[in-house]
Write a protein that binds this DNA or RNA. Structure first.
Lengths: 187, 187
DNA sequence: ACCTGAACACCGTTCAAGT
DNA sequence: ACCTGAACACCGTTCAAGT
């Protein structure tokens, strides 16, 4: 069972180095010190290995979100922090972010369910924030979808170099997320 | 020179069918009725062919944006329409959208420049809209970046099925874009 | 100038076989 | 239960050669 973890680790390394095409079962086996088709004893095929990488990433992030101290911090701050953390993760691991997007197009029900849990948590935070007066009125699911879309898009634009870090606006993904909450706060 | 267009057309077909992996130089040649390495007489390699697909898409969209009637339509409406059109294109051609994002990570200066032209047009529209009172104050580049991020992220979330079309919020990408402009209008 | 056919290296996947 | 080695089909790319 130790081999399985080693395979995922090696595959993640290769993914970060050069995207999914760089992840070769032969090279994965080579780095782990095992034959080129030993991975088939742990994963159905290459795509199952890639899905495992992303599944572990989401699990890690979900735990990080849930572990957030449930003290008297305003819900709006928890929501904003979660989105900032999501964007930070995406910018720091662009290949994982892109792969997750690619896999989501044809996602299995299980994977959709995993993401759904984190998503519902964000909607709950949004509803609480509205009660606490930190966000404008409206359907919480729709408000949360707007914030999530902005965080997702801003992260991707930063990754692809489309946020002109040297222009006048000089905004990164985190800045734009904070801008949205500032607009909401003024409303 | 007709072969070149036929190759791009066949490659685009394959891309829409199953993503970049589905685009095989051998299958492209087969569909055009030409040998499996005839593409090398028109493109340096497979990635050059994929880049050509995206370049033509962006050129087509840039023309469509520029052709917009320059009548007395408020600038804020032109800006919103451009973003709605971008999201509509992404949702309608998810494989092209994903490929464009993937290529942008390691984009050539030429490709960056092409996108830069459309981008500057959006920033100009934003500045005019601010003068006309249709948008809140602030750096136009930053405001435009926010709108663009939301449009981009909302399109991707709709494509990946993360916008819960059957939930209470029941928002698609277009709805979320309109929501942002509504918030700005109230500010 | 454009195309073909053979060839090479590489990859995902399968299968029979080993411990 | 886990791994190996050979084998197969497929792909990107190169090259010599044809018109």
């Amino acid at each position: 069972v130790d081999t399985r973890d080693a395979l995922v680790a090696a595959a993640t390394e290769l993914l970060d180095e050069g995207g999914p095409e760089r992840v070769t079962l032969r090279e994965v086996g080579r780095r782990v010190g095992v034959s080129h088709n030993a991975p088939y004893k742990h994963f159905a095929d290459k795509s199952a290995l890639l899905e495992e990488i992303i599944a572990r990433e989401f699990e890690r992030m979900a735990n990080a979100t849930v572990t957030t101290p449930q003290d008297d911090t305003p819900a709006v701050d928890l929501l904003r922090d979660a989105l900032l953390e999501y964007a930070r993760w995406a910018v720091e691991h662009p290949r994982r972010f892109e792969l997750a997007n690619g896999l989501a197009i044809n996602a299995s029900p299980g994977a959709q369910e995993r993401v759904g849990l984190t998503w519902r948590r964000l909607v709950e935070l949004t509803a609480v924030a509205q009660e606490q007066g930190g966000l404008p009125a409206g359907d919480p699911e729709r408000l949360a979808a707007m914030a999530r879309s902005l965080a997702h898009g801003a992260a991707e634009l930063q990754i692809t170099g489309h946020l002109s870090p040297h222009g006048k606006g000089r905004a990164n993904a985190a800045d734009l997320i904070n801008d949205l909450f500032a607009v909401w706060h003024r409303t």
